[in-house]
Amino acid sequence: MSVTDVTARIQQIQSQLAMLAPAGTSSSSATDFAAALDGVTDSTGTTGTGTTGDILPSGKAVVTEARKYLGLPYVWGGTDPDKGLDCSGLVQLVYKNLGIDLPRLSADQAKAGTKVASMAEAQPGDLIAWDNSSRNNGADHIAIYIGDGKMIEAPRTGLNVRIVDVPSTPDYIRRIVPADGVGAVGAAGGARVSASTPYANLFTAASEKYGVPAALLSAVAKQESGYNPKAVSPAGAQGLMQLMPGTAKGLGVTDSFDPNQAVDGAARMLRDLTNRFGSTSLALAAYNAGPGAVIKYDGIPPYPETQRYVRNVLSMMKAAS
């Protein structure tokens, strides 16, 4: 590994540890540090993501949930629906109720998910935000787009949560969940792999079950372990799909060395990452470097290892198809 790779690895680990620690807390204790390391990518590239395997909600579900709070009073700093909410408190609560954790502040929420190029491409459930003040670094007002040029917001003191026209072009448009009918998984699973491919039956079965291309699963297995179900990386990643122990636990995989469990768990993780980030390339980057790194860099992180990983897997996937 070159000096550049080592430097990139250090920066990667530092950024992921910082994101794993809740705001205002420290992970300096041995226990916290060990727990955080369990979610950091290893030398073969698989991270602990805490993925549960649940399918992400739709944009329509986000809008439906947000409508429940119409008429609630605005309270600066408010996060309690029994008392009132501010703009980022509303956004955080709506997504939390749907099983998605977002940061507390609007400036951080406006960096979550993936970028949407323009309002012409915005979908219900997307976050739209504005940077209205030079006193703040980043967005200071955020709302949930509901379609047809309208949004739900917690506006300001003296007003209630309401539906209004989008007043101006947002400075930030972010997609947290897949657009309805776009990027969803579970229908066609993708190309089958050759019967001569190791574990072809497992990749095909997981593809049909979760909608993840069998060729993608095969390519990940080849890149991660060389199809070796007993592989263990120096960092502790295990099995055919090189799952870290924390990742495996979050996926309900009790034995990472069991190819059946490993492929099933990796397929669910790749399904969720694809739904979350909207593309196979970003899903692979998150599988390798962690979702936090993809969010931080708003794309494939500038880590040489991760960039090679994505290129290699996509190339093998194309060849297998």
Rank of each mutant, 00 (worst) to 15 (best):
Y303P: 02
V166S: 12
Y74S: 06
S27R: 14
S29P: 06
S15Y: 10
P291E: 11
A120P: 06
L85R: 06
V310T: 02
L159Q: 15
I100G: 06
E305N: 09
A188M: 00
L127M: 03
S106Y: 03
G59W: 07
S256I: 06
A139Y: 05
D5H: 11
V94A: 09
G84P: 03
I173H: 08
V294R: 04
Q223W: 01
R271H: 05
D140M: 09
P259R: 05
T25I: 04
Y69F: 13
G89Q: 05
F277V: 07
V161S: 10
S118C: 08
K68I: 13
A266E: 02
S168R: 15
A129N: 01
G78N: 07
Y227G: 00
A195K: 14
I13N: 05
I13L: 09
A215T: 07
L93R: 10
R276Y: 05
G211A: 08
V232H: 10
M1T: 08
N97W: 13
V263T: 02
P178W: 11
P103F: 04
A187R: 14
K111P: 13
A18S: 14
T280S: 11
S168I: 01
A179S: 14
L240I: 01
M19Q: 14
P213F: 03
Y199I: 00
R192M: 01
S27G: 15
G39R: 15
P155L: 07
Q92S: 12
L102K: 06
P103R: 03
Y210H: 15
E305C: 04
E224M: 00
A110Y: 11
P229D: 01
S43F: 08
S321E: 14
S88N: 05
E153F: 03
T306A: 07
I300M: 04
I146T: 07
R311Q: 14
P304C: 11
A107E: 11
P234G: 05
A320R: 13
A205H: 04
A30L: 14
D272T: 15
L270S: 01
H141T: 02
W130H: 03
P302K: 12
G250S: 12
V313S: 04
G226W: 01
A219N: 01
V232K: 14
Q238K: 12
K209Q: 13
P229Q: 02
D131V: 11
G299D: 03
S207R: 10
G138S: 11
A195Q: 13
G278A: 08
I300G: 01
A179M: 12
P234Q: 08
N132Q: 08
G290D: 09
G292P: 11
S196N: 13
D298K: 13
D180H: 07
A23Q: 11
K296Q: 12
Y210K: 09
K83C: 00
D264T: 10
S27K: 11
R271D: 06
Y74E: 08
T4D: 10
D148W: 00
G138L: 10
M151Y: 08
T114R: 13
Q242N: 03
K209H: 08
V166H: 12
S281K: 13
I142Q: 03
D148R: 10
V94H: 11
G239L: 05
K111G: 13
P302A: 12
T64L: 10
T52C: 08
W76N: 02
G77D: 03
I146Y: 08
F203C: 04
L98F: 07
G183R: 06
S168F: 09
S15I: 12
A206M: 09
M241R: 01
A66P: 09
A30K: 09
L102A: 04
